[in-house]
């Protein structure tokens, strides 16, 4: 099949590649751009391990074709924080034991990041509802929820202090 010229902005960086239209965004990210943070847990849009941000939305990148993503702006876990300066959510997940095997974690944190953009001070129920597209087999969610709530408070406290 003919390949397409695809342009993406990933974590602020312009990327160009040739891909079959059917290639899934998760494969483009993981196998061509070597961004292996987002994982594949089900391939059927149920688990959220492949969650990335595309044009300001949390999406399951196993259910997006490369062709659909052409022209999109994408943020992956690799675009949040850096080894020297972890993102608040990354720190908070560690602090509150919000991960065990770590396989769901990139999707969880990327999704939580968007959730807090849209709802900076969520209740516990809102976090649970807003994270319901991401499955975790290890943690039982309790500490994930705790990590996100703590990160939200920290972000809000920092903002108040700055004002």
């Amino acid at each position: 099949m003919t390949k397409m010229h695809i342009k993406l902005t990933v974590n602020g960086k312009a990327e160009e590649l040739l891909a079959e239209p059917r290639e899934l965004l998760i494969h483009v990210l993981r196998e061509r751009l070597n961004l292996t943070g987002a994982h594949i847990g089900c391939e059927t849009s149920h688990c959220g391990a492949c969650t990335v941000e595309m044009n300001g939305k949390s999406v399951k990148s196993c259910t997006v074709f490369a062709a659909q993503a052409n022209g999109a702006e994408i943020t992956t876990i690799e675009g949040l924080g850096s080894p020297d300066a972890l993102h608040v959510l990354q720190r908070s997940f560690r602090e509150h034991h919000g991960l065990q095997c770590g396989f769901c974690t990139p999707g969880m944190i990327t999704r939580a990041h968007r959730l807090l953009q849209e709802n900076p001070a969520p209740t516990e129920d809102e976090v649970r509802f807003g994270m319901a597209g991401n499955l975790c087999r290890c943690t039982g969610y309790q500490n994930i929820v705790k990590s996100i709530l703590a990160a939200a408070s920290e972000i809000n406290a920092a903002q108040e202090a700055a004002e």
Binding site: G37, I77, P83
Partner: peptide
């Protein structure tokens, strides 16, 4: 004790077989 593994995992720097 906070987990040493988590610094890698939270940044998407785990190394699983499909990686």
């Amino acid at each position: 004790r906070k987990r040493v593994e988590d610094v890698r995992f939270t940044q998407g720097k785990g190394n699983y077989v499909d990686d």
